[in-house]
Design a protein around this nucleic acid. Structure first.
Lengths: 222, 222
DNA sequence: AATTTCATGTAATTCGTTACATGATTCC
DNA sequence: GGAATCATGTAACGAATTACATGAAATT
């Protein structure tokens, strides 16, 4: 019934923070912006949106434009009227909640399921949190590497070539991610040495006042 | 109620084909042999074993070892030997079923969830099936790369640095796996040119007779 | 006019996990 | 004798999917 998930919820809040959107577009963004890692279907998305509305983090804004504007073929081809699209917008409570989520640095934040989506919103995350998440993930992966090496040493002889190759390739992937993280961490450190505040992708606050005064729809940017 | 999963079921059958085992050890093997990719818990494993027994693919063999073998703490008051460890053994039908599974080359076989476990049992898989699976996966990944590149070209400007970096790293991972697959495919091809049959890791049949004659317990190899 | 794409949703199912509950055996 | 590890299970939940159902708008 609830469908509030963690990853999906986080991503939805994060995307809607940037700009209001309706479900269909949201889903496309989820599956591209958020990269290779996750793909969500409508069956997950719509119930999730409903749940978020119920908690007061989103509001539905039926894109019900005045019907006097009967546009058989949409003059100017612009994004004016269509079927009752429901545009979702983040409320003030929603914003606050998302910022709470952004500031979390608990142990799951660097697990496989969460790390990708956390990283995707690093643009809105403070530098110290970014550092903790990156370093947390790196040491998590190093732990994993140690276990793999140990297990490999114990069982090397009993395994056939394919199993071994699978293991080898898996370890290499993890090692590669560790190197990637190390580069990112160093680059974060360099960024924080010079420059006290600005110049490092600020948290993107104040995109207008608390609520867009005029119609927040028509911002579907397509 | 059923819990027959696909991946877990496949892996259990495959491991038990090599030798009978009880649940606890099976789980350890699942989480090491099968590599980084999957970790299963008892909550999944035991119900799965039960289901496989019900279908006639496994039999439970209560490991009632001869109690003459005095252990220092031993029999006093207990029913038979130790606690009833349940050793699972593949039946003839189970073997047949697993071979059916091994010979499948449908489109899911190279999807993310299945590919790892399929590869882990390549040692028991015929060469032509191996080839189809490897090539299927490679072209699946190439498709994915094409989509990613297209989407990246469309949206490059709208994305912040972190999202972009995530995307870049994701693509590189996929490219790396493609190169890996290409090497494997070539090596398979080379292997099949010379040598008509032997010398390419035969399917590992006949590890003794149909059933291990002596007690299959104490094979816990630790 | 027909097809594709946009758009929203629900019900049932899948594939797993965590937390709980229990007890035996081995190590120190 | 106490802790760690071995060993087996069940109930409740979680987070998503697939398949289904519907219909409007744009493209051809």
């Amino acid at each position: 019934m609830s469908r509030r998930s963690g990853v999906l919820e986080f991503a939805v809040l994060g995307l809607l923070r940037e700009s209001p959107m309706h479900g269909y577009e949201l889903r496309k963004r989820l599956n591209t912006s958020l990269g290779v890692f996750r793909a969500f279907s409508y069956g997950s998305l719509y119930p999730c949106l409903k749940a978020l509305v119920q908690r007061g983090w989103l509001v539905e804004e039926p894109s019900a434009q005045p019907e006097e504007q009967l546009t058989p073929r949409a003059q100017a081809g612009s994004l004016a009227g269509r079927r009752a699209k429901i545009v979702y917008r983040l409320t003030a409570e929603g914003k606050e909640h998302f910022e709470d989520l952004l500031s979390q640095t608990g142990p799951d934040t660097w697990e496989d399921e969460h790390f990708g989506v956390r990283f995707a919103f690093f643009g809105q995350t403070s530098r110290d949190v970014r550092m903790r998440v990156l370093e947390g993930r790196r040491s998590r992966l190093e732990e994993r590497l140690a276990k793999m090496r140990a297990s490999l040493a114990r069982t090397r002889e009993r395994l056939d070539d394919y199993t071994l190759e699978l293991q080898r390739h898996g370890m290499e992937s993890v090692e590669r991610e560790v190197r990637w993280l190390t580069e990112l961490i160093e680059s974060e450190r360099k960024g924080s040495e010079r420059a006290g505040d600005e110049r490092t992708r600020r948290p993107a606050r104040e995109t207008g006042s608390d609520r867009p005064s005029s119609g927040p729809s028509d911002n579907t940017d397509r």
